[in-house]
Design a protein around this nucleic acid. Structure first.
Lengths: 213, 213, 213, 213
DNA sequence: AATGAATGAGCTTTCATTCAT
DNA sequence: GATGAATGAAAGCTCATTCAT
């Protein structure tokens, strides 16, 4: 059985992605959910309340993945660990991107959202901090190069996913899951190896695998 | 002398950053600019027209920097070239971030903006492509490691700046120019060196390549 | 044991005085009474039905006092008889003032209330008539001056109380019982003696007892 | 030429008297005034603002009459002076009665109205004070009986008019101007002469003074 | 070119009322 | 009798846009 609140949250997610907050009216949400407009106010107080419920719902298992990252230090390979984390991050970022965009368009909503995120220790800054801490720990074990600035690397990795989510949204394109997966792998490979030529690797090897897209 | 259109564009930029599009009314824009509401319609046709004028105005010299990037191939150092490009990119991203947010909140506006950007070859995809082409060229010269996936590296670098701009906006913080400059340098250093320990570290530790497709 | 209907009536009286009908919702009434909203409809049919029950309940012993007034003709003093009657009238007027206000704001409710009052011979006009009849009877006995217009005097006396009740409500002040009592006594004294100087009383006597308030 | 604001004020007065505030919608006001709903907000900010404009407009020349009352001390006859003042008072009270009633139904509006009245020194208390001061001055001249309590007499007189206005409204009756005029004259005559039989009646009958405090 | 009063469609929100449990 | 989630009509209000001056 789907409850009224669930119907409303699902309808809102759908419409937000399709039309953008500014075009999504409470009337339309109720219609799409197949319930009366009043139900929205009964369950969520107001439109903003519903929006925040949608954000919560969008978090999925990202939080859990974030909490477990510290346990991975020294386990498996750094690349695999990063990959797992970024998959979860991207799923989250993809779901919230329509809302984050909308919040930037309304600073009143934004202020309210910021406060909620702060209270729950789940803001964007926190993700960066957790990832940076992980990288630093691996650095101590010698599994990450000493020259690396952990915070900077963490930003680079997470920004990549967030950016991709925003672009998908911006360009109204919809990468399939395999494309997403490959994009994440590519980012990690690039960041793992670094731009500077390695001493041992002769620069004679030409490769061109990534150019046709 | 400041013309009426200039006054309107400046007022809009200010209010967009301060309050977000959803809270910015034509009345408020006119008041802030010190002109009548009707003037807005004389000069820009409608509110969306004004918005697009603001985007154009926000581009600054970024376009020029982008055009000149191919000429830098093989010149100076890769790091310096990237740094110069990212500085200009960030300045642009910082200015447009309030507008990008607003566009994501209103897919009708977004569609119109997308069309304009496509016509002018100035969309976000274009920046990535130009930067990727630059990196590939440097790679052919051996100034960038062979394992690097140019497109992926370009995304990583630009995403970093865009992300930072969005976060500044999201968190209502305002990094000073020096902090911005340092952040960009850090990103480049991190990406240049790569996460994997360099040759000096005994190469016995095998790291998993994530290239299997 | 307090029944559900009693709880609802009390809650309504309280909220009506505190917030005014326009701000009193059925939900709030139910909450204050500690019962479900539906109960209101079981017991009173609709919100207007509840309101009329509150009016009935507010009548207290005023009706009885009114009925007994004719029996007082020629008994005790005119002043004491009037005082007793006005005390009861004021208590009633004080209780109904929030409701009278509300009725004046909604002529649909008002029409319904008017009908009920007419059927029960308890409208405001009836009070004036009863009091006027009493004064006329006393006039025949020579205990009230012959020049007095009984209906006019009755209006003056009742208006005074109604007015005071409305003002208490309007000014959100709350005269204590002693102040009310004194005000009624003053009104009666003033009306008893009349404004015109009495032949026998020399106007040389200065008095100033009432000026500091 | 009738301006938009004037049209709105007139329409509101009409509808308020006919239907009561709770039944008067902004849509209906605009329709009756023959202007767009937005005009209401352009000129008065909100519905409450319009209401206050209606009150101001309803004041007519009452304020002026009130200001001039002190100049009448010792002039003409007390009865005529009172009559003139009460005529103006009633005209005002009659016009505002629909609004006063409505305010009592909505304490939020009421609070705002109270504040405005206080700032303008034009509340109901002020009228009583001015009239009481007049009576006291006449008392010093011996033109009003020494036993009279000026404040109480002032209340009695003004309450009479306010009450009549409320009743006209409550009973949906509409006294013609002559009836109003006569009622006012009757009230004054009654209050001038007083209820107690005059000297011609043997003063042997002791009446109880109710002054003990 | 510039003005700003006027417009009115459409928004979010409220709340008396119903009805399955 | 009692409950309270669900309803949906209708309210106050906003704001991009027009147009006579």
């Amino acid at each position: 059985m789907t409850t009224t609140s669930q119907k409303l949250i699902r309808a809102t997610e759908l419409l937000l992605r399709r039309d953008g907050l500014a075009r999504v009216t409470t009337r339309e949400i109720a219609r799409q959910a197949g319930v009366a407009e009043g139900a929205l106010y009964h369950h969520f107080g107001d439109k903003a309340g519903l929006l925040h419920a949608v954000v919560e719902h969008s978090m999925g298992d990202f939080r859990e993945v974030l909490e477990n990252l510290p346990l991975k230090v020294g386990q498996g390979t750094v690349g695999k660990n990063l990959e797992h984390m970024l998959q979860a991050a991207f799923a989250f970022q993809f779901r919230v991107s329509p809302i984050v965009g909308s919040l930037l368009a309304d600073h009143q909503l934004l202020a309210r959202a910021r406060e909620i995120l702060r209270q729950r220790c789940i803001g964007p800054r926190r993700s960066v901090d957790v990832l940076a801490a992980y990288l630093q720990a691996e650095q101590r074990l010698g599994r990450v190069a000493a020259e690396v600035i952990p915070h900077s690397a963490a930003e680079l990795l997470l920004a990549s996913g967030f950016n991709a989510a925003m672009f998908d949204h911006f360009l109204a394109r919809d990468m399939g899951p395999e494309a997403v997966c490959q994009r994440i792998k590519d980012s990690i490979q690039t960041l793992m190896s670094g731009l500077e030529p390695r001493c041992s690797v002769p620069p004679t090897v030409q490769h061109d695998r990534i150019t046709e897209r």
